[in-house]
């Protein structure tokens, strides 16, 4: 009897939870409350210039974040592979800090550091190198770079740690065997280390591709609100603006559906790629 009751509770409870979660997803289609407009929202959206700029910026965010989430951390993790454990622990503790800093705090602090006239970065550029002050968040060409940099700043230490841990898990005997066979360092990295950590690498890359446009939300909202002239907006931000800025619920929802489908597909392809190209140390 107790077992029966427990099972009942156990099946029932996840069911309810799933049901809730499922309703959240189902609910995402409340087209503008009263009027049924069919697919016109989608048609309008796709032809909107805002949307095109945001879509292009989303691509920029995704591509721009990759160096911070994959390439740089990988390089750093590789060159720091055999540091003394005590040093490693110290560096770890330090480079991890940005990850836990609240995004709003990060935005505020970087806004101060990058302030056009009084920020320490521009002061140093001016006094140390005699350069003109840079308006990091107002210049249409630079603003998106600044936002990407701040989200990257939060990520880079974390990604480095993940890769370093993956590298530490590589079986040393394989590397030693390769050395005995006359492999140089470059060869043992490309032939042994990289294939063995490929699941971690690909996973991180996928995570970065899927989430970088979302990660930047807080920075966009605090620092630029999508401006100047839409230069830093992206699809998620546009969604937010439609929904709660202009209350165009229909548009926002339609954009949400498009995004969900697009990123769902991307995730599906990504996971398939990971499964196909990952190389497991059996």
């Amino acid at each position: 009897m107790p077992a029966l009751i427990t099972i009942g509770v156990w099946i029932y409870k996840p069911l309810v939870q799933t049901f809730q979660l499922a309703t959240y997803e189902w609910n995402l289609l409340p087209f503008s409350p009263k009027v049924f407009v069919g697919l016109t929202n989608f048609e309008r959206l796709l032809t909107l210039p805002d949307m095109q700029q945001a879509a292009w910026n989303t691509v920029l965010y995704i591509v721009g974040t990759l160096p911070f989430s994959v390439f740089l951390p990988l390089a750093i993790a590789l060159v720091t592979e055999d540091l003394h454990p005590r040093w490693r622990a110290t560096y770890r503790a330090l480079i991890f800090i940005p990850m836990i800093v609240p995004p709003v705090v990060a935005s505020v602090v970087w806004r101060w550091l990058l302030h056009p006239t009084n920020g320490v970065v521009n002061l140093t550029l001016q006094n140390g190198f005699g350069l003109d002050p840079i308006s990091f968040f107002r210049d249409t060409n630079i603003a998106i770079g600044s936002i990407i940099f701040i989200s990257g700043w939060k990520l880079i230490g974390f990604a480095t740690l993940i890769f370093a841990a993956a590298i530490a898990n590589v079986d040393r005997t394989l590397l030693e065997a390769a050395q005995l066979d006359g492999a140089n360092r470059w060869q043992s990295i490309t032939r042994i280390t990289l294939p063995l950590i490929s699941p971690t690498l690909l996973f991180m890359a996928l995570l970065s591709v899927l989430l970088s446009a979302q990660w930047s939300f807080a920075y966009i909202n605090v620092l630029t609100q999508g401006g100047p002239r839409g230069a830093t907006t992206n699809l998620y931000y546009l969604l937010w603006q439609y929904g709660f800025g202009t209350f165009a619920v229909g548009w926002s929802s339609a954009a949400g559906v498009i995004l969900f489908v697009a990123f769902g597909l991307l995730a599906w392809v990504g996971l398939a790629l990971i499964r196909r190209y990952s190389f497991y140390d059996a």
Partner: peptide, 24 residues
Amino acid sequence: ILFGLFALTWLVPFQVTMIPNYVL
């Protein structure tokens, strides 16, 4: 299937569900 449904919620961006949640 339930487990899959749980796992899939990972893919649903917050911004996509915000309006119905807000209304509720």
